[in-house]
Structure formats: C-alpha cells, structure tokens
Write a protein that binds this DNA or RNA. Structure first.
Length: 103
DNA sequence: TATCTGACGATAG
DNA sequence: CCTATCGCCAGAT
C-alpha cells in the first residue's frame, strides 16, 4: 500500500493517523501512547514503523518520542528544532530540562 | 504461509 | 545512568 494513499490504509493506520492528527503543537506523546489511543496497545513498534514509512504522508512524527523521552537518534536535530519551535524544551537530545549528565 | 526486520516498551544486570 | 534480553504488533520479502 502507499503511505500517501489513505484508501490503502488499514484500520490500524487509520486509527494511528487519527491520533497523530489529533495532536496539537507542543503536545508530546510516546509511541506506546499513540498505540493505546489508536486502540492497539502494545503496537508501539507498529506506530514507529508507520511514521517511518509515512514520513512524507504529513504525520507529526516530531511530536512522537520514545517512552524514555528520547528523540530520534538519526533525526534528533530536525525533531529538536521542530519541538523547540512549538515551545517544547529539548536538551541533549531529550525532552524537558537536562537533568543528570554532566557534572 | 513462514521468516526477518523495525522511528518500541519494560525488566534485569 | 547505560547496556542487554525478551515480548509486543504490523509490514515486507
């Protein structure tokens, strides 16, 4: 199926897309949260996979982070930039004020 | 239909 | 706090 064509999306993809579409600027959610909200608890990996393939489908992937609050290691710069633009504080590739490392 | 992979999550060390 | 292992679901080959 084509990630850009919703007509080919499965129930899971439509549900996940609905959750992602329901997010608003500054809102952060984990893959597990999206999976639960979509009605597919435990499908965190599937959510990540969907975002990865649908990076050009208009998914607010930057608002989705890991349960540890970590950003995408391969896109942390892009994601951090977008999050900061929405008022989200990102430090050291992590959301929120940097706490531990250092010192 | 079977097997492998992957923007993950949680627990153990 | 970081790394390693197991379990989870969906998609691709």
């Amino acid at each position: 199926m084509d990630p850009l064509d919703r007509s080919t999306w499965t129930d899971f993809e439509r549900a996940a897309a609905g959750v992602l579409d329901g997010l608003e600027p500054g809102d952060l959610v984990t893959y597990g949260e999206v999976a639960v909200e979509a009605g597919y608890p435990g499908a965190a990996r599937a959510v990540g996979s969907l975002l990865r393939r649908g990076s050009g489908a208009g998914f607010p992937w930057w608002r989705v982070i890991s349960a540890s609050g970590k950003l995408l290691v391969d896109h942390e710069v892009e994601q951090a930039c977008r999050l900061r633009a929405e008022g989200v504080v990102v430090s050291n590739g992590r959301v929120g004020p940097t706490r531990q490392p250092g010192r």
